[in-house]
Design a protein around this nucleic acid. Structure first.
Lengths: 224, 224
DNA sequence: TTTAAAATGATAGTATTACTATCATAAATA
DNA sequence: TATTTATGATAGTAATACTATCATTTTAAA
């Protein structure tokens, strides 16, 4: 028996659901690899087409452009994290414990294997870390937002903010803290790797553990 | 009498110092205007050349490409904030008070007028908010970092982290908190404007004041 | 003031990017 | 088997991101 996970995303993000066809899944798999390897700026549909022995035209049948592909991938990751949080905190009554699990899920999502063959969660996580905020730092944010292209991120922020409010109902900034957890998580992994003077997370050791400890410290202090 | 402020930046950021010539200053002034208006992606040297009645070739004599121009502008802003912090906290003995002034300087830097005619600090601040992290989210970070292209940001982070450590010498994450203050400041202004579900800062009211209150709350809680 | 040097303008050209369009063929489905 | 549907092959276009060359203007030195 195998359980197939398919994450449903806003239909405006793609022209044709890539998860439903061989070519579509190849596009996902190899775009993740190539963006991770060469960076989003250097990534083009032409290069991707060559890599997977297809054509530019075929890829354009799935995604309007590479920005929407990035948005699709990033949304996929956010959905995945949200899904994980849901599973991992299921049946946990204690809010504090719940929030610890949330933090752990954010930091370690890429280590859990969902069994989606065409998504390398580790590489996708790297993309979210390095290129993720390009997904919403664009002149078209408002228009894209009105189409629901950031729904997954908002849903995730809302879910986490609820746990935060459970821990401390008087805390005035649950949404801020929620998004800040994601942003910090991404930023400080990136800083530790590339700009170590901007963080206290050491580059050498087990970054994820250190990051998790740090986030938990911030959370505890802020909600006490 | 007039005091001319000239912010010195890493020489690798430009081919020819733009602050020293009429054309150079025009490039700074109008690139700020155009990036703010149309966004970094849509901004090109060709369009800028047309705007200022110059040529692409001439602009390329000042900056290798638009990414380095962005880096230059963002560094300029970081230097400017650092300079302001230095001035504003001068002769303030109490660390807590000092840190409050630091926070205020970060949030309100763009409101202070340095008398640099060719830099609209307000628009530049918008650029830092919307496009700032593209400055260091690139495949060439490591190489650019080794050339000192992020020195200004690091210097700023170091300066703020020192004040943080003055307030609480036992706090283990002074650099993290310092950079987090900048990132939060930028993010939550942006969120309030474009993705309000991601923040507790209200879009309508005086965002800067609200943001400042929020940052002070975070700082106080974390350092208590 | 002349002269040389430096800065800018004018123009052209190239490889790449980001697409769109059309038609043929292969694969899946009814 | 017929017929949608998906993909491939190919071509073409406008814009981008440059580089190169030479003429002209501006500035600074002699």
């Amino acid at each position: 028996m195998s359980i197939a996970i398919k994450i449903s995303l806003n239909e405006g993000l793609y022209l044709k659901e890539p998860q439903d066809s061989k070519l579509g899944r190849k596009i996902m798999q190899y775009s993740i690899e190539m963006i991770d390897e060469f960076g989003f700026e250097a990534f083009t549909f032409k290069k991707l087409a060559q890599k997977i022995n297809s054509t530019e035209a075929s890829i354009y049948r799935y995604f309007e452009n590479k920005h929407l592909l990035l948005l699709f991938l990033v949304n996929w990751y956010w959905e995945w994290v949200n899904y994980l949080i849901g599973i991992n905190t299921m049946n946990i009554a204690n809010p504090k414990e719940k929030l610890k699990i949330v933090v752990h899920s954010i930091v370690s999502a890429s280590k859990e294997d969902p069994g989606v063959a065409y998504v390398n969660e580790n590489k996708l996580h790297n993309i979210v870390i390095s290129e993720g905020n390009k997904a919403y730092h664009t002149k078209d944010v408002d228009q894209e937002n009105s189409k629901g292209f950031f729904k997954s991120y908002k849903a995730l922020a809302t879910a986490v903010s609820k746990v935060i409010s459970e821990v401390n109902p008087n805390f005035e900034y649950p949404y801020t803290l929620a998004t800040n957890l994601f942003e910090m998580s991404n930023n400080h992994i990136y800083f530790a790797q590339h700009l170590p003077r901007l963080t206290d997370v050491a580059a050498h050791k087990n970054k994820a553990d250190e990051l998790e400890t740090m986030l938990n410290y911030f959370v505890d202090k802020l909600l006490s």
